[in-house]
Amino acid sequence: MTLKSTLLATLTTLSLASGAWAADVIVVDDAYARSSGKSAKAGAAFMMIENHSDTDDRLIGVTSDAAGRVELHTHKIDENGVAKMVHVEEGFAIPAGDTRMLKRGGDHVMFMGLKAPFEQGAMVPVTLIFEQAGEVEIEVPVDLERKDAGGHSN
Rank of each mutant, 00 (worst) to 15 (best):
H75A: 15
A31R: 06
F130C: 05
A17H: 06
G151F: 02
L14P: 01
S53P: 06
S15D: 14
L114T: 02
E137L: 12
T13H: 11
L16C: 09
L16K: 14
F118W: 00
R34S: 13
H52P: 11
E137A: 15
A96S: 09
Q120L: 07
I129C: 05
G113D: 04
F111V: 06
K76A: 12
S53E: 00
A44R: 12
F46A: 06
M47L: 04
T127Y: 06
Y32S: 09
R146M: 12
S18M: 14
T55M: 12
M1C: 09
T74C: 13
N80Y: 13
A20H: 08
S64N: 08
E135L: 04
I77S: 13
E89G: 05
K38V: 11
V140M: 02
A17Y: 03
T2F: 04
D54H: 08
P125G: 07
D98F: 06
A33M: 03
K84A: 12
V88C: 05
S39I: 04
K147S: 11
A9V: 10
K41D: 11
V62S: 02
L144Q: 15
E119P: 08
A149N: 09
A33F: 02
R58Q: 00
V62C: 00
H73A: 15
V126Q: 00
T74P: 01
D56W: 05
N154S: 14
P141Y: 00
N51E: 06
R146I: 11
E135V: 09
M101P: 06
S36W: 06
A22T: 11
S53I: 04
G151H: 00
T63E: 11
H87R: 15
A9S: 11
K41Y: 07
E137D: 15
V109A: 03
H87A: 13
G91Y: 03
A66H: 02
P141E: 05
P95D: 05
T55C: 01
L114K: 02
A93I: 03
V109L: 10
R100T: 10
D57E: 01
L3F: 09
A122Q: 14
P141T: 01
M112I: 10
A67V: 04
I94Q: 00
T55R: 13
H75I: 13
A9D: 14
L59V: 06
S15I: 03
P95R: 00
G97Q: 04
D107R: 14
A44D: 13
E131R: 14
A96F: 02
S53N: 08
T12P: 01
